[in-house]
Design a protein around this nucleic acid. Sequence first.
DNA 1: AGCACGCCGACT
DNA 2: GTCGGCGTGCTC
Length: 741
Amino acid sequence: MYADIIIDITHEKLDKVFQYRVPEELEGDLRTGAGVIVPFGRGNRETKGYIVGFSETCDYDAEKIKDILRTDTSSVAIEARLVALAAWMKEYYGGTMIQALKTVLPIKRTEQQKEQRILKRCISREAGEKKLEEYLHKNQKARARLMAALLDDEEVEYSLISQKLNITLTVVRALEEQGVLEIKNHKIYRNPVKEKEQQHFITYTEEQESAIRTFENDYKKGIRKTYLLYGVTGSGKTEVYMEMIRQVVKEKRQAIVLIPEIALTYQTVMRFYRTFGERVSIMNSRLSAGERYDQMMRAKKGEIDVMIGPRSALFTPFPSLGLIVIDEEHEAAYKSEQVPRYHARETAIERASLEGASVVLGSATPSMEAFYRCELGEYTLLELKRRTAKAELPEVYTVDMREELQKGNRSILSDRLHELMEDRLKKKEQIILFLNRRGYAGFLSCRSCGYVVKCPHCDVSLAAHNNGKMVCHYCGYEETVAKKCPSCGSPHIGGFRAGTQQIEELVKKEFPQARVLRMDLDTTRSKEGHEKILSAFANEEADILVGTQMIVKGHDFPNVTLVGVLAADMSLYSDDFRSAERTFELLTQAAGRAGRGAKKGEVVIQTYSPEHYSIQTAARQDYQAFYTEEMNYRELMGYPPAEHLMAVLVACEDEALLEKGMHYLKLYAMRITKNRKVQVIGPAAPAVGKVKDVYRKVLYLKQESYEILIEMKDKMEQYIELNRGFAKMRIQFDFDPMSGF
DNA sequence: AGCACGCCGACT
DNA sequence: GTCGGCGTGCTC
């Protein structure tokens, strides 16, 4: 019997499987995920590794294969539990054990050593010069090079030295022994903010109080479960989380708070620092891989109690995890785009159950999945129906844009919205205009023949930018804007939908006195563009903020009393089964931006389909009604959460081969599903049929039971592996996908 | 990453 | 010839 083992995940070059023989006496107690000690390298030095699989035969020279020495007892319980979680992820989401382990265990990247190791000269300049002469005399070139560098600067980064001067660690060690330099592993754990204010006593609303009590009582009794904290925007969910975390920390356990990256505002960060001081660590995408690794190590050593961060923070190696909070639980960002395509919600619940922790999901617009689980009694519902303080829920109007057109109003702004905007500008209150789209004019199409300009590599429409270029958002392909239709030659080719830039220009023209800020992917591309724009608006340096989805998420602007939603139904037209849910979410979140302060807010939703339930229920801010309607649809169509959907995405450079492969894969799927009523749909062209000249096809399988789908996945994986014809195809599984591929 | 192997110039 | 230093490549 042989075991596939990955050696010490901390280095990229060793990032592959090594085979070892399993000695008979160990056969019983080794399983996938177990930590073992193996002889490695020429010196057979004892090295730690993890078992990622077993096999009866070996694909490597049998004579060279060594025996596993023993199981690793030093690998702490923390890692063992994370490895168990990885095994679960592999099982549930597909992919290999290595891929799962890599997402779960903190990885030290080589890049990060650059920042870590610093060489410091610890002898005087004169002594150094003497040494340099000595090395030159002895013709020790490498040492001389290093010495010269150290004379220029007292401290140098090891990575610079090793790359530019081609100096290896042996040389550095030699100089270290001579006392010429010292190697500093500098680890500065920086906390962006050092402020530690006196905790002020917060008074909670009755609803908040009751949510906190429920959690605390359960927790003290040792009950661990999953809660859904459903609270309208502005109802004070964060305070509730903090109180729950305090409870957990009091019992010497730790908490993880997941946030969608964009929602991590300065205000939120400060709130956590004020309460938990230095014992909080915040991860964001701006941290380098090395810094992130350091934060993980701090957590492991017990130096922090609370980790706040995006999806990946879920794998923080805490010694005694007590609580996982997932804020804005409905966000699509919680689903990983890479294999294993795990969902943080489900994975958090699994981790919590492995470690005896509770999970709190929070949202103003819970995902269908979460609310459904509440109804089934799997999660406990905690509700916050009212806003804190005096803030009231805003008044919402729906405007039918078809009627506007009939009235002769061809503008992007309805009369109603126009009027209200004038009113707010007069009152010196702020306005948000929210557009469901990015770019200047979106795609270009011919008004005479309907031809749409597409990317020759990726099969998506090119987006026109106002620099005279059309750009592919998948591969970055560019061409200049066509003046004539490439298909029929008509000059009537142009953009249809308004983009944020166009709206900005229009607003500036109609309200010349107003100060307008625009926020979309183009204006926030620079490092801190995001924060800059938001803080400028928060400081009331502008009257109107025009932007895409990103402005509706989690920000608090007390002086905003009017929100205009332009083209509300844009997201209704996308062709995946979550489009209604996404529309409801966006509208509700957008509406939630209005009237956060003392003054009541108003919202205008402009739409071409005012009769659609997601728009009507959003206008009434009636989640329950939306949920009921939407659930009917999901049940009727057999979509998640009513049933489970497994997407099988196959990619291949050869289109004909792909076609053939998909045909056989479908036949195989139908064959193994026979008496289990699994629906096999497709193969279909995914939304993006071709990326960087690689063709893609997708097959969908529907079934009520997740377990049956997993069985199907396993069988299909085996089939693909046994069948050589699939060698050139890359196959991925995605369970309950967030959007069509 | 860490270790041995083999090359290369310097010196007994 | 041998010794120590240095770069290279491999690790089941």
